[in-house]
Design a protein around this nucleic acid. Structure first.
Length: 593
RNA sequence: GGGGCUGUAGCUCAGUUGGUUAGAGUGCCGGUCUGUCACACCGGAGGCCGCGAGUUCGAGUCUCGUCAGCCCCGCCA
């Protein structure tokens, strides 16, 4: 193919098919850059050669689809192009055929100009001709294959599970599909094959994996698409450690394929540890800058903001930016604004001067000895800048975790060659849902509690830790999973705590409860986000850069125009009526108002 | 649901304090040119300034609304 020719091919007669990337007509000799999936090769047309070929070459335009045959030869001395992988050779064209013409394209695939994403998505087939996107899709294929091969070698069986399935409570909003044959009822597209893979374990499949599309109808982000691909895995007769070990191996082979370092042993942090030091359950360990709890110091301080928060069971935490004394006032104001946007009341800060004294918004509130205690607690040296947030624990942690990441990026601590992996374990099983005034599952309601914490389910549900684990790379969750409940009485107990009634659990997961009674092996598993794995390994900033046909932030596809209104006939067959059609469409004729 | 940024030629962008006929690069069309490599040079065409109101003698520019794209919060077990 075009990108594969080197000086080793000199003398060979080849035929290349591809797209005209550029055409340089010198009035006599014509150079054509021909592109295909693998790259670009220069084709040379001489006026002294075949008249037909020359006439055809003169008429070529960019993005026409052509077939060119000729002999590979070394370029003359001084005419080589070191910027091109194939720059040492060229094809002397002996035969040329236009396979298809092309209208002028909206943008040129080979020009390194930043084209708006909207345009790129609308003409995605042209965007895909760009080497960045072609390359990403090729790498995605290789990563996927490498993962399949790994699990195959480990004895896993790939089993397909249904896309048309049943809506489950808890978790994300479902995408619904109306049933025509049973009008008024709906399938749900799976948020993940969670229950099916557990049923496969109960069915004795022992080791299951599937690379599978999942669907969640929630608002999107750069790292979140409404449909995404999971590497879904489940294993029987295993502990957390077994699952972690086997699946870590999968990431190890992927990392190797992508030339990404992978440690001999991956760090393991408890959830509590991660929250304490980093304020988040997916810490970015590429740099230090840990958070420090100074609530106790704040209690006794003259700084009312701190003291009142500390007294009201709030959390006062801070981080120390090494060398941060060099920050300008406007830089710090910018950081404070950043924190306010995330919900903080403000950002208190103090620079440590060369003589050890403090300067900044809270310097005057700390006497010399308290100042020393603060510096010690914050591990701050002269030349550093300490920054603090005081708020409810959740807000304090959220804001400081975000601030830490921002500082890490701004201060250049997240080098492109830094790769920090870790497992986060011992998550809480449940969290209190303020809105609904009940406990809800942190992971999902089938996650097993730690054996030694089961007794806390009645007395102190918030204290119960779970057999759940997440794999984190550079502050992004690549995947997570858990050992599941395989005992029907424990499962019922968890449902009780979640205030899922006997009746509701029977209606929603009766089939699982039944299955748990008919010989369920202990089992557990994990699911990795394939799109995220590819995105991070290829160092792209958006999932859209590793998906062939992604959706926009509002869930649309500029290429196909999806989602779109459907014919009245289609709706009638489903016994569905649209109450409020989108702007630009007529109201249904039979609408009574 | 909330906050922020953006929207001007096919594409990427500039457009001053509100002031005559809205510019540039690139692409496109025509021409010249035998070693370029995003060829070069000469000429030409190309605009619903996202859309809708408002302020004004006058709006690409100011105000309000709306739509779309992107980033973030909420949400995403």
């Amino acid at each position: 193919m075009c990108g594969e020719l080197t000086s080793e091919n000199i003398g060979q007669v080849v035929r290349l098919c591809g797209w005209v990337s550029s055409c340089r007509n010198h009035g006599g000799v014509i150079f054509i850059n021909l592109r295909d999936r693998e790259g670009v090769t220069q084709v040379l047309v001489n006026p002294s050669d075949d008249e037909q070929v020359y006439k055809l070459a003169k008429a070529l335009r960019n993005e026409w689809v052509v077939s060119a045959a000729g002999t590979v030869r070394a370029r003359p001395e001084g005419m080589r192009n070191p910027k091109m992988p194939t720059g040492d050779v060229e094809i002397v064209c002996e035969n040329l055929a236009v396979l298809n013409r092309a209208d002028p394209v909206p943008f040129e695939p080979d020009i390194p100009e930043k084209v708006s994403e909207e345009t790129r998505l609308k003409y995605r087939y042209i965007d895909i001709r760009r080497s960045e996107l072609t390359g990403a899709l090729v790498m995605r294929h290789r990563i996927t294959k490498c993962i399949r091969d790994y699990y195959d070698a480990e004895g896993f069986i790939e089993v397909e599970t249904p896309f048309l399935t049943k809506s489950t409570p808890e978790g994300a909003r479902d995408f619904l599909v109306p049933s025509r044959m049973q009008q008024g009822t709906f399938y749900a597209l799976p948020q993940s094959p969670q229950l099916f893979k557990q049923l496969l374990m109960i069915g004795g499949m022992d080791k299951y994996m599937q690379i599978v599309r999942c669907f969640r109808d929630e608002d999107l982000r750069a790292d979140r698409q409404p449909e995404f691909t999971q590497v879904d895995v489940e294993m029987s007769f295993v502990t957390c450690q077994d699952v972690i070990r086997v699946n870590e191996g999968a990431m190890r082979v992927v990392a190797k394929l992508c030339d990404v370092p992978f440690p001999e042993t991956v760090k393991v942090l408890s959830y509590d540890h991660a929250m304490r030091d980093f304020g988040t359950d997916r810490p970015d360990l590429r740099f230090e800058m840990t958070l420090h709890d100074v609530t106790d110091l704040a209690k006794g301080s003259d700084f009312k903001v701190f003291a009142s928060v500390a007294d009201a069971k709030g959390l006062v935490k801070g981080l120390t930016a090494k060398g941060g004394a060099a920050f300008t006032r406007s830089q710090i104001d910018g950081l404070a604004e950043f924190c306010r946007e995330l919900g903080a009341k403000g950002l208190a800060w103090a620079k440590v001067l060369d003589d050890g004294t403090l300067s900044g918004s809270l310097a005057k509130f700390f006497t010399a000895d308290k100042c020393d205690a603060l510096k010690a607690a914050m591990d701050a040296q002269p030349g550093d800048c300490m920054m603090f947030v005081a708020d409810e624990p959740k807000t304090t942690n959220k804001v400081l975790a975000a601030l830490r990441c921002k500082l890490g990026k701004d201060m250049g601590l997240c080098g492109r060659d830094l790769w920090a992996w870790c497992w986060v374990v011992d998550f809480p099983l449940l969290e209190w849902d303020q809105l609904e005034q009940r406990w809800s599952a942190c992971h999902h309601p089938f996650t097993a509690p730690l054996d030694e914490d089961v007794h806390l389910l009645d007395s102190d549900p918030g204290k119960v830790r779970s057999k759940a684990y997440d794999l984190i790379l550079n502050g992004t969750e690549l995947g997570g999973g858990s050992v599941r409940i395989h005992d029907v009485s424990v499962q019922k107990k968890v449902f009780d705590t979640l205030k899922i009634s006997e009746q509701e659990s029977r209606a929603k997961f009766g089939f699982l409860l039944d299955a748990l009674r008919f010989g369920a092996p202990p089992h557990g598993g994990i699911a990795f986000g394939l799109d995220r794995i590819v995105m991070i390994m290829l160092q792209r900033d958006s999932l859209r850069d590793v998906i062939a046909f992604p959706k926009t932030t509002s869930g649309g596809c500029p290429l196909t125009g999806a989602p779109a209104a459907v014919d009245d006939k289609q709706l009638a067959e489903l016994d569905i009526r649209v109450i409020r059609p989108p702007a630009g469409l007529p109201m249904p004729p039979d609408d009574a108002g």
